[in-house]
Design a protein around this nucleic acid. Structure first.
Lengths: 352, 352
DNA sequence: TTGAAAGCGCTAACAA
DNA sequence: TTGTTAGCGCTTTCAA
């Protein structure tokens, strides 16, 4: 029965081949392949068997063209190097696994023009949905998104207006909350360490929220240190050393992400700097990674996997639906004080 | 000139719309959109302008069907949670960026049946190439790969027979090399800590190579500890504590990856265990992460990004080519002794 | 439950 | 340099 076409045949198999082998019309084979009911059990089995023994793989290009429907979901993220995005992708993949939808990933390297190109490319496949990181896009990208006749889910950020739907957290609020916690714990001489990337809007918004809450308390960020590229753990060490050398009287360091925060923590411990007594530390993201460090770093969960899952749910909900859209899901990150952000002795706390 | 179709129109734009707007045939528009030469500069500009002002996005589904060619490259990996795979994907994306090819990722969760499903799904898009992790696949998957009329690149592993081409390292050799280095440094009472996953063939092969080289030196792994899931840094700590409690006389711990190795290192340092004097440590992967740790962990670079780049190069090289294929690129991981694998005082080394 | 006809939007091949 | 014609392999729609 098994024809074992193990040599690469000249012509790829088509529905017609299966239909001839099974002795039914192409239409019937098509129905079986798509599980579109109304096929008798016996015919169905015959077709399935023929298809399997021939090694037939349907051609979705043709199928998509005929049906004007495609089971792809475009997912566009800035980077894969940043731990955060693989986690979002996992969340998306997890939810789509139980649907006929398939994620297709594109990476922009934080470059707006690259985002345009990737988006254009993906839209040319007429996906059933687009999940894209961030709310900031070029004029062209926004037009592409608006005109795409498919649900658009902007993720990770909730500070701004989405083209269609959005799922994310407010990074401004996250920054404010962290500032409040730090001030409340009695720290006053606060430094900031972060990425230089002017295009990482979420890091920027956290910083803005942070300084805003500081200002409200009559405080200012006393010193800053920025970096780009490279191992973040090592960078965290180096930056921490640099900023503490320049401004030895800082009593708190706020890092724009957990990796550099962890590096800072290791630097302090290695150099006998008391954490959180002498300096307090906090990062951002809530990476699992932190669980193994000598001290648990204060951080804030960015709800990465959950954002991915929610976005995927929105897309899968909307397949088949005429319109809908316009949903806004704002998740609330949880503040985790860990062991590096603790109320300080009041003696310290009260000296401005 | 700009028609600003910002409202979602009922019918998506087609070549015909652009051809009417520009006053040329659909064929000419098609040529412009594909840069397929033989169009006068003036016509070209007219078409480009019309296309842009209408907001036309080509339909690759139709294009792919007509041309029997598709610019997608299927990339199938077991997981995104493991640091290693995003790095491979980055390498692939990096190389494909400068080509017309687009990566499409699929995740199998280390499940062979899931791999079959993902592969089938991807092949139904008739990609210009398939890059898939590992050399071990189900019978069905192998048949799918063999019959696919597109280059297949199996990556990450070089211990076995590829269906078509392969790019990877020999994990057996990596295990042997590490064992040799450990023995050469004078360690004798060696423990192994690794993942439980029976389907992680590469980890398994490293272990096999490791024990093989040990056996050749008349040694055996004295104790083992396995884990699954969870934060690997923390797991590394826990496992290390457990194994040292059970077998306090071990003088070396070989970890199946750097994350648990790093956890082990932190555990030892926290508990005043001299590394590498009392116990030596080694991991696998060569993660950048290690650069920031208190001591540089001995490890071996798995050539992750390079594997991705080479695989992408093979695919892009083969587009348009009639056949070819069958390439075997075996990379040589570099052993990095770091600061946790050092020659021990001969007094120790010579007491079996 | 099954089949026949038409056509999805584009491109290959050829003609002008 | 530009245009015409005939499909690509499916699915939709309608008929049997």
């Amino acid at each position: 029965m098994n024809k074992n076409r193990s040599s690469k045949s000249a012509r790829p198999l088509t529905l017609r081949d299966v239909s001839e082998a099974a002795g039914v019309s192409e239409m019937t084979v098509s129905r079986v392949m798509r599980n579109s009911g109304d096929v008798s059990e016996s015919t169905r089995n015959r077709v399935l068997e023929a298809s399997k023994s021939l090694g037939y793989v349907p051609n979705r290009i043709a199928g998509g063209l005929a049906s004007q429907r495609v089971n792809l979901v475009a997912v566009i993220v800035p980077s894969l190097g940043n731990l955060v995005f693989p986690e979002v992708l996992s969340g998306i993949a997890e939810v789509l696994e139980s649907t006929p939808l398939q994620p297709v990933f594109g990476v922009t390297n934080y470059e707006p023009e690259r985002e345009e190109a990737v988006l254009y490319e993906m839209l040319s496949w007429r996906p059933s949905g687009v999940i894209i990181a961030g709310l900031e896009h070029t004029e062209i990208s926004r037009t592409l998104l608006r005109d795409a006749e498919t649900p658009i889910i902007e993720i990770m950020d909730a500070d701004g207006e989405p083209v269609d739907s959005m799922v994310g957290i407010s990074h401004r609020r996250a920054g404010r909350q962290m500032a409040a916690a730090i001030i409340e714990a009695g720290y006053r001489r606060i430094g900031f360490l972060g990425t230089k990337m002017p295009l990482d809007h979420r890091a920027r918004k956290r910083f803005e929220g942070f300084t805003e809450a500081m200002a409200k308390a009559g405080l200012e960020v006393m010193d800053q240190e920025f970096y780009e590229g490279g191992s973040s753990l090592l960078k965290g060490r180096e930056m921490t050393e640099a900023i503490l050398k320049r401004a030895p009287d800082l009593d708190f360091l706020y890092y724009s992400n957990d990796m550099i925060g962890a590096g800072g923590l290791l630097h302090c411990l290695d150099n006998g700097i008391d954490v959180p007594g002498r300096v307090g530390l906090a990062g951002f993201n809530g990476l699992d990674l932190l669980d193994g460090l000598p001290r648990k770093l204060a951080t804030m969960d960015a709800c990465r996997a959950e954002i991915g899952r929610e976005a995927a749910r929105l897309v899968s909900k909307s397949v088949g639906q005429e319109s809908s859209g316009g949903e806004r899901i704002v998740l609330r990150p949880k503040l985790q004080l860990g062991e590096t952000l603790k109320r300080r002795p009041s003696a310290w706390a009260d000296q401005t």
